[in-house]
């Protein structure tokens, strides 16, 4: 996909968002809708400008850098796993597991090295946030 096509899609998406803000703003009582109308209109104008700009065409090499989808999806899965586990199992179960998985599968570190970094880094997080700054991180299963 070229940058022109992407820009067109972004212009349509943001344009729709801004149009919705304008319409909603117009229906607001008093002057509560003034700012959404102004900002939405600004967004609409910018979207129109970008969409019109794409009609001029660009050099054929103007492509965004290619995305390694398998690594991107694996990373997203790791991140989603971290967030999901953080709430249920607790931060100090989720953090080492996330670090271990991403360092092993994305960083290609050997298991012992990945494990050592995961444990040491989680300990640093514990000392800084829980011990020194008294931040109550989600305890999850460890609460019992």
């Amino acid at each position: 996909m070229t940058l022109d096509t992407i820009d067109r899609c972004v212009a349509v998406l943001v344009g729709a968002l801004c149009a919705a803000a304008v319409v909603t703003g117009l229906g607001m009582p008093g002057d509560a809708g003034v700012f959404p109308v102004i900002t939405g209109t600004l967004g609409l104008l910018a979207s129109a400008g970008i969409a019109l700009g794409t009609l001029r065409g660009r050099a054929p090499d103007d492509l965004p850098p290619s995305l390694p989808w398998p690594r991107f999806l694996l990373w997203c899965l790791c991140v989603l796993g971290l967030l999901g586990l953080m709430v249920t199992a607790g931060a100090f179960v989720a953090l080492p597991l996330f670090l271990l998985a991403s360092l092993r599968w994305l960083g290609h570190l050997r298991w012992p090295a990945a494990l050592a970094i995961a444990v040491v880094f989680s300990a640093v997080i514990y000392v800084v946030f829980v011990y020194l700054l008294s931040v109550p991180l989600p305890a999850g299963w460890l609460v019992a």
Binding site: W75, C78, V79, L82, L83, M86, A91, L95, F98, L99, S102, L103, L106, G107, H108, L109, I117, F121, I125, F129, V135, L137
Partner: peptide
């Protein structure tokens, strides 16, 4: 790939 997960953990916490 080693730095990224650490930045993400700091960001999340």
């Amino acid at each position: 790939a080693v730095l990224g997960p650490m930045i993400l953990v700091f960001s999340v916490i």
